[in-house]
Structure formats: C-alpha cells, structure tokens
C-alpha cells in the first residue's frame, strides 16, 4: 500500500501569490480527485508533490520519505502528466517514450521495448508510433502523455487536467486506462470536470484559493446534500432577486430557459422542485459556501 501525506503545505510565489495555504491530505492507493476552479492551486499542489517546486512551509511524505527534502524519493515512482506539455520537435513517439523510459531507469532493452509497445497499443498510438509527437493532435498528445506517465514502475501517478479538450471517445479511453492501473497505485487526478471525479474517484478533495475546503468520498458528499437541492425555472430578469433572497448555488440553461438551483434544508415554495443531488451540486454548493465564508489566499 502506497501512502501520500500532505501536511500543512503552503506555497507562496516570489510575486507574493499564495498558491497553497495549509493544505493537508492523506491519500492511499486508488484514484483520488482534486477538484477546483481555475487558479485554485491544483497544479501548484501537483508540482509540489512532484518535487518540481519547493514548499514555503509544511511537508510532503511519500511512503515514509519526506520528499520536500529528497524529491528523488518520489521521482523514482512517479508518473506525471502535467496540464500542458510540449515535446521536442522531430522526435517520434517511439523515440520519445524510449528516451523517457531510460531516464526512468528502465534500462533492460527488451522489457523497455515491450512496455512501450504495450503502452502504445493501450493508448491507441501504435500505428502513429513513428510519427513526430509534435505533429500529433491534442487528443493523441494527451494519450501520449499518459503513456509516458505509465512508463517504468510508477507507484503514484499524477494527472493534471487530463481530459480537457478531449472528445468523448478519447475521454472514455483515457479514463479507462487510468481506472485500470489505479488498483495498485495512487492516482491523483486534478480536474475541474466534476463528471470525471464522479466516475473514477473513490475519494476527492475540493480546492479553493489554495485551501482544501472539502474532502471525502463523492458518495458521502452527495449524500450530505441529498434532498437539499431545489430547482426553479426563472426568467433572467428575476434571477437577481432570487439570488438575493435564496442560496442560489448555480444556474443552468435548458432549452433556452434558465433554471436556478437553490440549496435549502426544506422546500421553499411550491414552485421549487426537488432534484436528485449530484456531485456538481456539491461542488457548486461548496464553492458558494467558501466564497461566502471568504476563504482568501
């Protein structure tokens, strides 16, 4: 069993931005979702775990090793797919995977070739293996990203916004791959797509302004709000009044008509219809609460 402990980690950049503020998490094997809006600190947290940036305070312990002091202790077992990445020009997928595999310590040529081949097949890139990665489409490049993250013997895989910009088919394929490997390793999935978390993760945390504002299993979080989300179709002109009056967590357009979703312990009026709670409601509710509580970085 692999364990990752994040203890009260803060990160302040040189320009004064407080990217992480006392983040504490405990993660073990399985898929763990990090949900948060843009700029919440998800990528900063991932870079900190990967040892790509130092912490301002706090520490990160992986399998008992303090990687704030010895980042190499996690890198040996790390598969990392950053949010955005480029590749060297003119290098084929095969050559680039080979290059990264060697750097990850897969020095046995036969084993390396076999693993690369398997990964190329798994990510459906085999027939493109000799093409330059720089010419790949966005989806292909993402799949290449996961292939490189799975090289070697990773015990922790971190994927930062992996499905952004993928078409549904690509997204499913990608999530399948992650799901397959997650039984014996930690997979840390950072995203702002709630659906990905719901489908894949047994545990999750919501980040807002560099702080963990909620954590737990998606089921439990949904359960907590069950029966407390109400929907009301509302004309746009009345939306402001409704927002002032009730705890509107989100609005949604359906067939050109706006519906407001309101958090309330009980039905407010008869024109409020109870809806089954999903993770998106949880996410919006927590964000709303966080904003109200004025979590500031």
């Amino acid at each position: 069993m692999n364990t990752l402990e994040i203890n009260n980690v803060s990160k302040i950049y040189a320009n004064g931005t407080k990217a992480l503020n006392g983040v504490s998490l405990k993660i073990s094997n399985g898929m763990y979702g990090l949900l948060g809006p843009n700029g919440a600190g998800k990528s900063s947290l991932m870079r900190t775990i990967a040892g790509l940036q130092t912490t301002s305070s706090g520490n990160v312990i992986f399998n008992g090793n303090d990687i704030s002091k010895e980042p190499s202790k996690i890198r040996q077992y790390l598969g990392y797919l950053p949010q955005e990445f480029g590749v060297y020009p003119r290098m084929s997928a095969l050559d680039l995977l080979n290059h990264i595999a060697v750097l990850k310590g897969v020095l046995n040529k036969k084993a390396r070739q076999a693993q690369i081949e398997a990964l190329l097949i798994k990510t459906n890139l085999f027939e493109h293996r000799k093409k330059a990665v720089s010419n790949f489409s966005g989806g292909m490049r993402r799949r290449f990203g996961i292939a490189q993250a799975l090289l070697g013997n990773p015990k922790i895989i971190m994927v930062d916004e992996p499905t952004a910009g993928l078409d549904p088919e690509e997204r499913n394929r990608f999530l399948d791959v992650l799901s397959e490997v997650s039984s014996s390793v930690i997979v840390l999935l950072s995203t702002h797509i709630v659906e990905d978390i719901r489908v894949l993760c047994s545990n999750m945390a919501i980040l807002y302004n560099g702080q963990i504002v909620k954590q737990g299993s998606p089921e439990n979080l949904i359960q907590d709000l069950q029966g407390k989300i109400w929907k009301k179709p509302v004309p746009k002109s009345d939306l402001a009044v409704l927002k002032n009056k009730h705890n509107v967590i989100s609005t949604r357009l359906l067939g050109g008509k706006t519906s407001a979703y309101v958090f309330s312990e009980q039905q407010l009026t008869t024109d409020f219809e109870a809806v089954p709670t999903d993770l998106e409601h949880v996410y919006f509710h927590i964000l709303k609460t966080s904003k109200t509580n004025n979590y500031a970085a």
């Binding site: 040996q76 290059h99 060697v102 750097l103 990850k104 310590g105 897969v106 020095l107 046995n108 084993a111 390396r112 076999a114 693993q115 081949e117 398997a118 990964l119 097949i121 798994k122 799975l150 070697g152 013997n153 990773p154 397959e180 490997v181």
Partner: peptide, 24 residues
C-alpha cells in the same frame, strides 16, 4: 499484443547512471 505491465526499474548503480548519461 502484450498487456501493459509495470517493469523493473534499475536502482541507481554507476552503470545505470552511466547509461542514462550516455543516453542523454
């Protein structure tokens, strides 16, 4: 078509480091 399996990663011996170096 082989299935994906994690593979043995060489611990950082001198030879392994040298191989990495030459490769880079």
């Amino acid at each position: 078509h082989t299935e994906y399996q994690p593979v043995f990663v060489v611990k950082k011996s001198f030879k392994a480091r040298f191989k990495e170096f030459i490769h880079l």
